[in-house]
Amino acid sequence: MATVITVANQKGGVGKTTTAIHVAAGLARRESPTLLVDLDAQANATSVFIEQPPAMDQSAHAIFREKKPVRQIAVPTRIRHLHLAPAVLQMAEIETLLAGNVDGFFRLQEALQGTHYEYVIVDCPPNLGLLTVNALVASQYLIVPMLASKFSLDGIRTILDTCETVRSRFRSELRVLGALLTMFDPRTAVSRLMMEPVEERLPVFATRIGRSVVVEEAHLMHQTVFEYDAKNRVAIEYDALVQEILDGIKER
């Protein structure tokens, strides 16, 4: 079975999609067969690898509407060992389509059965709705990107409660791999002050992802930071994060 890692936070603008993209790309660069599943209707992760949106029945939408297995919609990317299950705008209607379905929370888990990937990275919408719960039910691990801010800290309790609900109701093996501090600036007082209260609530990755315009430049060019500027500080930080994730999984 693949190791499934969800990247989720109900808050937007915390580097969630950027993290999912670069964790997936970083694993693929280590020659591990990896699948990136985009469940966000904004399809930002998809846009880095596909310039034109796919047909709805060839996207992650079909996992939920038609119960298609991932192997029928996953497409190779230009990065060797990395495949993508792309998103489309119509992902936003999934919540309504599956409302009241008994198996609604298991569609992604079922779709991933029989895949040949070593790792699956799931990018979620910025909420804790049905798509995010699908990802959590299908996953062994969760990464929570967050800013060093009070509002990000306030939201931790909600996502941890959701994880506990998933574990208890669905007999899930889900574990929080860690919180990832993004757009981090150690020179500011708030960044330093936020460390202790975050660490009191959940594990925190030693790797911090700094703020850099290179990330936006890379996305504008439909590239990962690894492709755009592999020597940039953020690329080095994401590579270190991938190694820390692998070490954390090995320890468990």
Rank of each mutant, 00 (worst) to 15 (best):
A2G: 02
A2S: 12
N9F: 01
N9T: 05
Q10R: 06
K16M: 04
T19Y: 00
I21R: 03
I21S: 01
H22P: 02
H22L: 09
S32N: 07
P33Y: 04
P33F: 00
V37H: 07
L39S: 00
L39N: 03
A41I: 01
A41G: 14
Q42D: 11
Q42E: 05
A43V: 12
A45W: 02
I50T: 13
I50H: 13
E51L: 04
M56N: 07
D57W: 10
H61F: 13
A62K: 10
I63E: 00
R65W: 03
K67S: 13
Q72W: 01
A74E: 11
T77N: 10
R78C: 15
I79K: 13
H81F: 15
H81S: 10
L82S: 14
H83W: 12
M91E: 11
T96I: 12
L97Y: 06
L97D: 13
A99D: 11
N101G: 03
V102Q: 03
D103W: 15
G104N: 07
G104S: 08
R107D: 06
A111W: 02
A111F: 01
D123C: 05
C124K: 11
C124F: 05
P126Q: 07
G129Q: 03
L130F: 07
V133T: 14
V133I: 08
N134E: 04
Y141A: 08
Y141D: 04
L142V: 14
I143Y: 01
S149M: 09
K150R: 08
K150N: 02
K150I: 08
F151L: 12
L153I: 03
R157M: 06
T158L: 15
D161H: 11
C163K: 09
V166F: 11
R167G: 01
R171M: 15
R171A: 14
R171L: 14
L177R: 07
L180F: 10
L180H: 03
L181V: 12
T182I: 07
D185T: 05
P186T: 09
R187K: 12
A189E: 13
S191P: 05
E200K: 15
E200M: 11
R201S: 06
P203D: 05
P203W: 08
F205G: 12
T207Y: 13
R208F: 15
G210R: 13
S212P: 08
V213G: 11
V215E: 09
E217A: 12
A218M: 05
H219F: 14
H219R: 07
L220P: 01
T224W: 05
E227P: 06
K231Y: 06
Y238N: 04
I245C: 04
L246W: 02
D247C: 00
R252C: 12
